[in-house]
Design a protein around this nucleic acid. Sequence first.
DNA 1: TATGAATGAGGCTTCATTCAT
DNA 2: CATGAATGAAGCCTCATTCAT
Lengths: 222, 222, 222, 222
Amino acid sequence: MPSPARPSLTPRKQPRQARAEATVDAIFEATIQLLTRPGAENLTTTRVAERAGVSIGTLYQYFPNKQALIYALNERYLVALTEKIEATCRAQEGESAKNMLKALIDTYWQAKTERPEVTRALYRSVADLDNTALIETFAQRVDAATTAMFSSASDVDFANLAEVNLTLVTVIFGTVRNAFERGLDTDEADRLHGQLLLMCEAYLVCIGERINHAGGQSGGQD
Amino acid sequence: MPSPARPSLTPRKQPRQARAEATVDAIFEATIQLLTRPGAENLTTTRVAERAGVSIGTLYQYFPNKQALIYALNERYLVALTEKIEATCRAQEGESAKNMLKALIDTYWQAKTERPEVTRALYRSVADLDNTALIETFAQRVDAATTAMFSSASDVDFANLAEVNLTLVTVIFGTVRNAFERGLDTDEADRLHGQLLLMCEAYLVCIGERINHAGGQSGGQD
Amino acid sequence: MPSPARPSLTPRKQPRQARAEATVDAIFEATIQLLTRPGAENLTTTRVAERAGVSIGTLYQYFPNKQALIYALNERYLVALTEKIEATCRAQEGESAKNMLKALIDTYWQAKTERPEVTRALYRSVADLDNTALIETFAQRVDAATTAMFSSASDVDFANLAEVNLTLVTVIFGTVRNAFERGLDTDEADRLHGQLLLMCEAYLVCIGERINHAGGQSGGQD
Amino acid sequence: MPSPARPSLTPRKQPRQARAEATVDAIFEATIQLLTRPGAENLTTTRVAERAGVSIGTLYQYFPNKQALIYALNERYLVALTEKIEATCRAQEGESAKNMLKALIDTYWQAKTERPEVTRALYRSVADLDNTALIETFAQRVDAATTAMFSSASDVDFANLAEVNLTLVTVIFGTVRNAFERGLDTDEADRLHGQLLLMCEAYLVCIGERINHAGGQSGGQD
DNA sequence: TATGAATGAGGCTTCATTCAT
DNA sequence: CATGAATGAAGCCTCATTCAT
């Protein structure tokens, strides 16, 4: 993957026919399979094509180069992840902050945990890819979604929403990833999961925002 | 790069003469330089040797293969980081939990921030290296150090030290890394740094351990 | 080159298109040419590809490594040699033992002599190759062929065919190779050729089998 | 082992002191050990020196280059083998031809069989060495020895001693080597050994020389 | 559009050999 | 004399990519 004169990362053509879409899917699937096998560093376009059951020429019909393939794969993953988070955020509109935290943590934790090898593989795959733009794009979408969610909390009024949101999002996502990389066993992971929620709640209490444990009755004039 | 028939990652020979030690240092330095340049995926043994001002053969006298070089570099970094943390922990013996948290976060944050490109480069460099063992070794040393520190806190008695320690360590390290990867500007970073400390303190309060918030006011003669 | 974790010696892909077959032939031919030049120890994949007029990548499309190339070349040679011997054996069915011996010796002698540099080169090329299996396979085919031939001899009935066959085959092939390696001049070689035949005939007489030197005159109803 | 401008093959200096002789012996022994291990193709001067317990510099004090080492090793082996054969020949002076044949075959067979891996290894080691001269030198010595022996046979008068001698020597040495390479089991080898002797005897009979099977009893006036 | 044979720059690594200490 | 750090030419092989069919 030589980087000077970085080539286009956008797919070469959009699959218009069903057949083409199936091909692209097969290629993605093959890539993931190879990526999640030991020896993933051996990911080669030839092997991807082989496993996808298409010729190498066909692969290059859909992706102008290897980086574009990896980029597209990560994009796909990030889109799905982001959409999950957005869905969670929408579903929590108007809920209590505590519920929001719980839902956010659960969603992210589960997303990272359900196919751990895939997560790990994707982390590795982007090592030498300039995916800053990708990351940023999706970070913004996530920030927007969580910000909107928290601003609708039924029981809290955030004085400095931006700061709190950044803190929570950074802590949650960072902690989950770290937990993930430490290879904790299920038991430890579960307990950590719980403690993370506790910590985030404690944070909200601490920053002086009143959480109406009792529900909305005490204030509500907002 | 971990594949069946994993080649040895241990250095080939220990430098015995002073000359040899200088050589190894030059190789490490050259590796870091190449790693922190854009196009880091182009790290090649040839270029490392070139930049280190030694022949390629000399490089291979000390490292049996490219992976071993990267591995050794990471080990070196982790050793230094771990030792810093251990020093911090020892220095905080008997202090208040709040001071401990502050010291721990500061130490780690600074370690990651002072040569950010190096940090970033090392993260990337290990992408396809089986460094699980390395990580685990140092995670244990760090856990031991922080556990010892927290257990000596002057103002708190942890009912479940292991769990609390794991939580704090995972949250702090994960958050710092994530903050770091998001490429926050200095201002955001500073605020996040503060909020992280706040959150950890709040966590300690929340789990029911009594922290003397009042510090001096309740008694004052401390 | 046989080492632990022996790499595959089987060709990588079968040529499907005519173009590909020509390529493989060119590679074989180039290998032989390089092998038969003085300095044969300098056989390198790069030079083979160069002389064959193909790129080094193409060579590796068909042979997974250098050993596989040498192995395939030897296999090819042994197949040809074995087939020649089998043909000779078939042609001698029902002949007299003496004729059989003559035909066998002549065939082998000629096969070794007609392109002596090739023979010599192949002997050298396999020096560090685990070709035991190859040798064994062809030794068995040859044994089978000669055994069948001798068992059909018109004038002899072998009491212990297996032993006699092994002896004759080992002596003939060993002697020819040795004669060959001694670098005898034509004259010496010719005389040795004759003496070898004589010796084998004498052996048959000696082991008590009746050879009808006189042809049919003695009776022949046996 | 690059061959152009073939460097000197003669040892650099003769060991004069006992210490030096021990060093050379250690180097030879180490070479044989490495040569007889699987992976013998990996014979390197560094490894030889290591195993011999001397520095690489010391090795080069005694051998100007790697080829010279291998050459010297083979020379040593051939000298020993030749001397064994010469001794046998001297011991058989005046004996019957049959006894001579038996002694010669036995000697050679045993020499090849007693350390088969060494034999095999040496065969391999010379693959890319121009040892023609070596071979020739020792072939001549052996020829001289066997010729002298046969000419002293008590019971035979060779009309064409040179031809007979060449034939016998070529057949015997070639057959033994071939038997050796076929990897025969002990049983087969033993029988072949016997048959080879038989064949050589039959040859002598056949070429019209009278062998006094009865030994001296029939006349003794010779 | 699909195929797969061909390409070749360039990566990793070895190892015979030298020479300053 | 011995040592062993350093050398660097050169070998093997991979793999992203192209293009004729």
